[in-house]
Every structure is written in C-alpha cells, then in structure tokens.
C-alpha cells in the first residue's frame, strides 16, 4: 500500500448474508469493492451483492459443481485478485472460509488473519483485530505486506480512520459492537453509477478432492447454530439421567440443550455438536442459560454473541456471573424445578 490510494478489496463468502456484510465492511474502509460470486447459478447472488454496495461483481459459474472445494476456490480467487489488482481479500469466517484463508494466503505468499472482528485503516495500513488466548484478549495486527487475506466474523466492525489519534479515541469507547443485522439498511450509497456485474471466465482443473456423499448429520445431534434459546449444562450436573431436567427446561423455554466441555469431552454425556465454546460451537441465541457452568474463558468466547445470558451456579465466585446479565446463586437441582413450576403455572 503506497500513498493515499484507494484500496481495492476483493470479497468472497459462500453464505450470501455474510457476503453482504463483507461488502459493507469493505465499504466502511472507503475501498473499491469487488465482490466474487462462485457457484452453479451465481446470477441472483450477483444482483444482491451489486445492490448492497459493491463497485463490481465478478461471477464465476459452473453448473456442474455442487461443492466448491477450498483448493479450487483458492485458484479462482487468486485469478480474480490479480485481474482486479486487489490489495486485500476478505473471506467470510465460516469453517471452509478459514481453511480457504490459509490456502489462499500461502498461494499469494501473503500475511493473513482469521476470524477478525474489526478492520481499520491507520496510516495507509490495514489493521485487523481478533480474539486470542481463548477469548481473554483482543489482539490488533498490522498487515504489512502488499497483499493480505483476512476472514471476517459475522457482525464485524469497520472504521476508515486516517490517523492513529482517532483510533485511540475510538478504542477507548468500546472495541466491540453488537452484530448489525443484514438487511436493506446495510445498502451503502455510492456516488458513482450502477455496479458492473461481469462474468469471470477461468479454466479450472478438476479438484483432486472429490465429494463422495452429502448426508444429514447423525439424528441425535442438535444444531445449536440457529437456536433462539439454548439451555446449557456443565459440570454441576451430577448424573447423566439428570439431563432430563435440563431437557425439560429447554422444551419449556422453546430452546435446545447445549453443554460445556466436561459434559461432551470428558463425560461424553452429550455429542460434541452440543458443546458450546471456542473448541465446540460458537452460538448467538437471543437467550442463553448457563446452568452449573463455571465460565472458563473458552466457554465465554463461544457465547460472546448471545443477546441475554443467564447463569445458575452454586458457587457465588464462579466467573460466569461476571459474564452474565442475570445470575442466581443456588443449587441447580432446586432452581431448575422452581423455574419449571413457575413457567408451567404461567402457561
């Protein structure tokens, strides 16, 4: 990055909602935004990205592909980046997205940061923030190379700040914001005219990685990712049989059952799909109940985006209470039945 030039940023995510957020983040950096769309029928996604503020959309179509594997994506995005002269590539921080970051960065001999929660430009350098040490701290990185690859978490913040003095003042305010829902409000107004949608042609060699089968995960696994309410249980549970009590509360609140590390990894009372935390799943329910969970940093990092957090624990000094909105110090075997009785009374 030299002088006061406008950055050109290429964005890509297989998930349309996050792809639109990436365009929004890049626009916040006052960049020239080129959105990549790759798929069997990229037409409508290309239109959506064009209307949400991209300066240009590059659409790669291959109707025979049902799964775009990371290796092929890295080849396509490398070619697109060199075509538009990109200074940085933003990728959605999905599971495959983060694998793509490493592969693409090595291909471009570029520096990379995964799971960034905030981007800014300071003295013409791109800065990226991410959580480290199991969620205990936020590190701020300076991207010093001529090309950077960064994956962005949903709800990331951006700021196009020119000097460091401004950065310091905003940092004091608060570094994290609540995720902005993606909707029409995110449409950025651009001074220049209608964005151009362009078909991107590239001879793609067949991938050495083949998709053999696509199947729904095992029936007993519960997907917590989109759950509105999650009732999670931890080490405070004395017996596997007592899971019924937690399940009953989850049903009463219209939610799903999650757990902390010991329940999934040590006791194996619940499948790992229900393990909430940095090593398990990161969730963003409206309501989260942590029952008998002490609140290790790794667990807290998994519920950072929960709207309201409730804690029930018999240890008044448990760290979970500092990370909860409402907490009850008490025996879960007494509190949970009392809650159930009251909810049933009200219904």
């Amino acid at each position: 990055m030299n002088g006061q030039e406008t950055l050109t940023i290429l964005t890509y995510c297989e998930d349309l909602k996050l792809a639109m957020e990436l365009v929004h983040v890049a626009n916040g950096l006052k960049a020239n935004v080129v959105a990549a769309v790759i798929g069997p029928e990229p037409g409508s996604e290309a239109n959506d990205l064009a209307t949400c503020g991209a300066n240009k959309v590059l659409a790669y179509q291959d109707s025979s592909m049902e799964y775009f594997e990371v290796h092929q994506l890295s080849v396509l995005l490398d070619a697109m980046a060199s075509k538009v002269g990109a200074d940085a590539i933003l990728i959605g921080a999905t599971q495959d997205g983060n694998s793509l970051v490493g592969r693409l960065a090595a291909r471009l001999d570029a520096g990379a940061v995964t799971d960034s929660i905030e981007l800014s430009i300071v003295s013409n350098n791109l800065h990226a923030k991410r959580l480290i040490y199991g969620g205990a701290g936020i590190a701020n990185f300076i991207m010093s190379g001529s090309m950077s690859v960064i994956s962005i978490q949903p709800g990331a913040k951006n700021s196009a700040l020119i000097n460091s003095a401004l950065v310091n003042s905003t940092m004091n305010n608060s570094a994290l914001v609540n995720p902005a829902p993606v909707n029409c409000a995110l449409v950025d107004t651009k001074q220049d005219s209608t964005p151009i949608i362009e078909n991107f042609i590239h001879e793609l060699e067949p991938s050495p990685v083949k998709l053999l089968e696509l199947k729904a995960s095992q029936a007993n696994a519960v997907s917590l990712k989109d759950a509105e309410v999650v009732v999670a249980i931890g080490r405070g549970l004395k017996d596997k049989e007592d899971l019924k009590l937690i399940e009953e509360l989850a049903i009463a609140l219209g939610g799903k059952v999650g757990c902390s590390r010991p329940i999934a990894a040590d006791m194996e009372w619940l499948p790992v799909e229900q393990w909430v935390g940095l090593s398990g799943v990161k969730i963003k329910p409206r309501l989260y109940l942590a029952i008998g969970i002490s609140g290790q940093v790794q667990h807290i990092a998994g519920i950072r985006d929960a709207e309201l957090v409730i804690a029930i624990n018999n240890d008044a000094d448990a760290p979970i209470f500092k990370c909860a909105d409402y907490g009850i110090v008490g025996d879960l075997y007494k509190i949970v039945p009392a809650l159930l009785a009251r909810i049933k009374e009200g219904a």
Binding site: G111, A112, I132, I138, A175, A316, D325, Y326, G327, R342
Partner: peptide
C-alpha cells in the same frame, strides 16, 4: 513476516451482571 503485532487489549463485556442471592429457590426463580 507480513503480519506484525500492534497491541493487546482485554476483551470487554457489556453484561449487566445482576445476581440474585436469595436463599430460597422460589423467589429466585420468580
């Protein structure tokens, strides 16, 4: 290296941290 470390800050929390220490389960649940 293409990435350099600039600074570290603690992860903030905006939680209300209101705790009920009522001895009895019923009032606490209420």
């Amino acid at each position: 290296c293409q990435v350099s470390f600039d600074s570290l800050e603690p992860a903030p929390s905006n939680r209300k941290s209101q705790v009920c220490e009522d001895e009895e389960p019923e009032p606490a649940a209420a």
